[in-house]
Structures are given as structure tokens and as C-alpha cells.
């Protein structure tokens, strides 16, 4: 298993280099100008100077190489030296956002907790709701519960977050009286500091709407998947064997069937983790959560190429990484799979 993981990690390196090249070139070719957001009164010569000061005068391969080494070597080295103090930070300037002139990595790290708190929690909530729904739906196939589950999943699948998000705001922020229990804020206040029960409660309440919107999507997908996987296994011969041994239904279903059904579901859950960051882009925008999804949108609008490149590359790394994690989990859960 360990050799397999190491081999896969080594194989990921050329993949990621290739991806980074594509990302870099595509964004480099994209129309857009870092000075386009500046006031029109700035004369053309000054604009040219600004572009050159941003490093845009150099040939493309030099710029790519600088970006790549910065991202995979200098930035990690910087954080390592900050964290441990074992060596001095590298003597290379940090990669700066064109828009804010702050180091891109600092911005991302500053925004990451908001994303993780809202999107990560939504994913966990979604999965935790989805699993029991899937199990019960399969065990009671075609029951009222199953039909209701199918209906809710259909809604979750077919209504995109930019619609369900607005719908939630209309119902719970606009439609409810301000003092009602069912009123929830539509704007996520990042400056809120949790210091006591009251602020904690406020924090919980402002997370409700975005978490609900994102969790609906996750629940829809995972519960369908869980149901299908359970149904697949409930019809297997080994289930009959388990019953013929005199085991109770709960042991048969929650041990024998569930353990088998979880194998593909766990894989799908792992594969879905990077996707939640992508999916959060729109939801963060709607609820004004200043996480990395929102940062990506702002950066795109401002033609802030280094930020967009870096964020996109981080998504790519997450996808490759969680693919590996999914494969490893599969191997751990299914004794028939041997990777070495």
C-alpha cells in the first residue's frame, strides 16, 4: 500500500506540472488587462509602466517558470520558515496579488477558514443527512419515505444554488419578521468574533442559510448514491446467507450490507471534497461569505492573474490529491483490492 501511495504521488507530479502549464497559458492568453480597473485618467505610458512593473514584459516561459517555482518552492519555504524558524525566509519577493498588492497566499490563508467553516460544515452536514436517508430509502424501497426522499433529491439536483440561495433569502430573511425564530441573516458577517454564547448563537444562525443551500445539493447526490449502493447489495446472495444464519435485521443491514455499500460511497464522498470549493463560489457570492470562492470571483473580475492562477492550481492539486485519497480508501475498505 505504501509503495502504491508513493508511486501515485510521484505520478501526480508530471500531471500537476502539465496542469499548471495549461492553467498558466490559458490565463495568459485570456483577454483582460490588470490596469483596466484603474481610472481612465491614467495615461497610456503610465499604464505600460505598471504592466512592466508587474513583470508582464518578460517572455512567457520566464514568467511561467517564475510562477511555478514561486508556488511550489518559495511560498512553502516562506511559510515553513515562519512556522519553525529553522532557516531564514527565501530572499525572493512574495507573489503579490495585482489587485491588492498583498501576498496571494496570505489572502488565501486568511479567507480559507470562512470557506471551511461554511462549505466544509455544509458538506459534513449534507453527508450526515444523506447516509441515513439513503439507507432507509433502500431498505424501504418505494415506501412513502423513499418517495419523499426521491422528491427532495430531485429538487436538490435540479435547482442550482444561485436559485435556491435567493429563494432561501426571500423566505427566511425577507419573508420572516425580524424577531421570529425563523428569521435568518442573509449576509455572513466575517467580523463577528465568537466570545460568548450569544455571539456563538449568532454565528450559528448566520451559517444556517448558506449551509442549508450547499447541504441540499450534497444530500441530494450522496443520498441517491447511498440508496443505489444499498439496493445493489441488499439483493446479493451473501445477505441471504446472513439471514439464514439467524442474524437480526439490524445486524444484516447495518453490518453486512452497509459495510459493502459504503465502499463506493466513501469514494464518492472523498472525490466530492475538492468540488465543494468550486461549488462554494456561487453560494459564497450570494451570502457574502468572504471565502476563497468569492476571492476567485473578485480576482477574475479584476484580471488579477496571479491570484486566479494560484487558486485554480490549488483546486487542481486538491482534485489530484483527493483522487488518490479515494483510491486509497477503496483499497482499505475492500479487501479484494490489492495495490501492490
Amino acid at each position: 500500500m505504501l509503495t502504491y501511495v508513493i508511486r501515485r504521488l510521484l505520478m501526480a507530479i508530471p500531471t500537476l506540472i502539465f496542469i499548471s502549464l495549461i492553467i498558466f497559458l490559458l490565463l495568459d492568453l485570456a483577454p483582460g488587462d490588470p490596469t483596466s480597473q484603474l481610472p481612465l485618467t491614467i495615461p497610456d505610458e503610465v499604464r505600460q509602466q505598471i504592466r512592466e512593473s508587474l513583470g508582464l514584459g518578460q517572455p512567457v516561459h520566464i514568467r511561467y517558470w517564475k510562477w511555478l517555482t514561486q508556488m511550489v518552492y518559495y511560498e512553502p519555504a516562506y511559510y515553513l520558515s515562519q512556522a519553525t524558524g529553522w532557516f531564514d525566509p527565501p530572499e525572493v519577493a512574495r507573489m503579490l496579488s495585482w489587485q491588492t498588492r498583498a501576498p496571494v497566499m496570505d489572502i488565501i490563508l486568511e479567507r480559507l477558514p470562512q470557506t471551511l467553516r461554511v462549505v466544509g460544515l455544509a458538506y459534513v452536514v449534507g453527508v450526515l443527512i444523506a447516509l441515513p436517508i439513503g439507507i432507509i430509502s433502500a431498505y424501504r424501497q418505494y415506501s412513502v419515505f423513499d418517495q419523499a426522499g426521491t422528491f427532495v433529491s430531485m429538487i436538490g439536483y435540479s435547482i442550482p444554488p444561485f436559485f435556491s440561495g435567493v429563494l432561501m433569502i426571500v423566505i427566511f430573511s425577507v419573508g420572516m419578521p425580524r424577531d421570529s425564530f425563523w428569521w435568518f441573516p442573509s449576509v455572513y458577517d466575517t467580523t463577528l468574533k465568537v466570545v460568548d454564547w450569544e455571539t456563538f448563537w449568532k454565528q450559528v444562525r448566520q451559517m444556517v442559510l448558506p449551509v442549508m443551500v450547499l447541504a441540499l445539493q450534497t444530500t441530494a447526490q450522496i443520498s441517491r448514491f447511498m440508496r443505489a449502493s444499498m439496493l445493489d447489495n441488499l439483493g446479493q446472495d451473501y445477505v441471504r446467507t446472513a439471514r439464514a444464519k439467524g442474524l437480526t435485521e439490524s445486524v444484516v443491514v447495518m453490518k453486512h450490507v452497509l459495510r459493502n455499500s459504503m465502499i463506493p460511497v466513501v469514494t464518492v464522498i472523498a472525490l466530492g471534497v475538492p468540488a465543494i470549493f468550486g461549488g462554494a463560489i456561487i453560494t459564497e457570492q450570494i451570502f457574502k461569505v468572504n471565502g476563497i470562492g468569492q476571492f476567485l470571483i473578485i480576482s477574475i473580475q479584476a484580471s488579477d492573474v496571479p491570484s486566479v492562477q494560484t487558486l485554480t492550481f490549488i483546486f487542481a492539486v486538491l482534485i489530484v490529491l483527493f483522487n488518490l485519497i479515494a483510491d486509497v480508501l477503496y483499497g482499505i475498505l475492500d479487501p479484494r483490492i490489492r495495490y501492490d
Binding site: 446479493q236 451473501y238 441471504r240 446467507t241 446472513a242 453486512h256 459495510r259 475498505l333 475492500d334 479487501p335
Partner: peptide, 15 residues
């Protein structure tokens, strides 16, 4: 006790 027809699929693969 019951012995089923198909031994290949009658045991649970993950235990």
C-alpha cells in the same frame, strides 16, 4: 442449517 446453491457469492466479501 442452509447451504446455498452458489458458493462464489454466498459469502460476504468484506469480512
Amino acid at each position: 442449517g442452509f447451504v446455498f446453491q452458489d458458493p462464489m457469492t454466498s459469502l460476504n466479501p468484506v469480512f
